[in-house]
Design a protein around this nucleic acid. Structure first.
Length: 219
DNA sequence: CACCAGGCAAGTA
DNA sequence: TACTTGCATGGT
């Protein structure tokens, strides 16, 4: 008789299986924390390849600087980030974030990073256009704080392995991982990346390519 | 042609 | 609270 695995053992087994199958993810792409923050907004409901186009355009204009972008008006900024889609709302969201950055840290990300995780998360969530996933992406990948990032892939994979209910909400799913796993930045970083890569390649549909999925068996 | 992508806010009932 | 809709480009 096999004893049921603890939730922690299950999650760590998943991690190892994905790591063995897929190798390192090298997330999050970006040369600076500020670029990571911009990417976090730009990638909302958007393929990363389109985000790269937008970031490249900003980079080519030498605009990867908070104060420089804050000086742009919305139409100009929107036009620059057009390839990322939703360019008007995302332009406004970036300006909202920069307004927050200016008011709370004089445009200095390294000052913002001094805030404790929970406090910074709460503050980020007050910005219009920064929801929980964007906030956690910034916290983890730009500010190196152990805030687990969950997304629709995470929910789908967990649900299909009967780890969590189908209708679990964002905060509960994040809590599930953070209660079970050690609070480690590198672990959270790679775990989220591996879940997204796994979800993209194998878990879009139940009848998809799950025969070769690193997470087996699907129950 | 349809569907998806590393979401979020605002409106409705 | 629970659901719906708008936002928009580019790849498959």
């Amino acid at each position: 008789m096999n004893k049921p695995m603890s939730r922690q053992a299950t999650l760590l087994n998943f991690y190892k299986a994905m790591q063995d199958a897929l190798g390192p993810s090298s997330w999050w792409p970006g040369d600076t924390p500020f670029e990571v923050c911009l990417g976090a907004i730009l990638t909302q409901n958007t393929n990363w390849s389109n985000v790269e186009k937008a970031l490249t355009r900003l980079k080519d204009e030498n605009l990867l600087d908070p104060e420089k972008i804050f000086c742009l008006d919305l139409p100009t900024l929107s036009e620059l980030i057009k390839p990322a889609g939703y360019f008007r709302v995302k332009g406004q969201r970036i300006l909202n974030f920069l307004s927050f950055l200016k008011d709370s840290a004089d445009f200095r990300l390294e000052l913002l990073a001094k805030q404790p995780l929970d406090e910074l998360r709460t503050n980020l969530l007050t910005v219009k256009g920064i929801g929980p996933e964007t906030a956690d992406s910034m916290l983890l990948y730009a500010f190196s704080k152990p805030s687990f990032v969950v997304d629709s892939y995470t929910a789908r994979i967990c649900n299909r392995h009967s780890l969590t209910p189908e209708d679990i909400d964002y905060e509960e799913l994040r809590g599930f991982f953070m209660d079970v796993l050690p609070r480690d930045v590198e672990l959270y970083n790679e775990y989220h990346a591996l879940l997204v890569r796994t979800g993209k390649n194998w878990c879009l549909k139940r009848e998809g390519k799950c025969r070769t999925c690193p997470l087996q068996p699907f129950s």
